[in-house]
Simulated scan of single mutants.
Amino acid sequence: MLKLNRVHHIAIICTDYQRSKQFYTDVLGLTIVREVYRAERQSYKLDMEVSGLYQIELFSFPEPPARPSRPEAAGLRHLAFEVDDVEAAINHVNAHGVTAEPIRVDEFTGKRFTFLADPDGLPIEFYEK
């Protein structure tokens, strides 16, 4: 039987590196681990941590193709972050000009959650602890 230990990283390709870097670091507060520019690929790679646990890789490539990214599109559905207080998280992103959807309640857990979008429309979920 295959033994998976944990999620190692999540990779995101953006269309505007500086705008996405600002969103993930300044708005969401992820910590930068390493940033490199790979000239041969004309690509930045930004490694970020979430509370020291998971690593998110942000890539830039020249003219990446568009991909459907609504929460119900086929493929990766969304990126979810656990938060202590969903209303406080919404207020924080609103202060940075980011709009979140109205709060919903998970019908099975009773937990509150909301969705917002990163600069490229990738659905981001805040799920209350």
Rank of each mutant, 00 (worst) to 15 (best):
L2W: 08
L2E: 02
N5D: 11
H9S: 13
I12F: 03
I13W: 02
T15I: 00
D16V: 09
Y17H: 02
Q22F: 07
F23E: 03
Y24N: 09
T25C: 14
L28V: 04
L28G: 00
L28Y: 03
L28C: 12
L28K: 03
I32G: 01
R34K: 15
E35S: 06
V36W: 03
R38K: 13
R38V: 11
A39N: 12
A39C: 01
R41C: 00
K45S: 10
D47W: 09
D47C: 07
M48E: 01
E49M: 13
L53A: 15
Y54D: 15
Q55M: 13
I56Y: 04
E57C: 07
E57K: 10
L58I: 15
F59C: 06
P62C: 03
E63T: 12
P65T: 10
P65A: 13
A66W: 03
R67L: 11
P68N: 07
S69D: 05
R70V: 02
R70D: 10
R70G: 12
E72A: 10
A73F: 10
A73V: 02
A74I: 12
E82R: 15
E82Y: 10
E82V: 12
V83D: 04
D85H: 13
E87Q: 11
A88E: 13
N91E: 13
V93L: 13
V93Q: 03
G97P: 08
G97A: 00
V98P: 01
P102Q: 08
P102I: 14
V105I: 15
T109Q: 03
F113D: 04
T114I: 04
T114P: 00
F115V: 09
L116C: 07
L116S: 02
D120H: 09
P123G: 08
E125T: 05
F126H: 03
Y127N: 10
E128I: 03
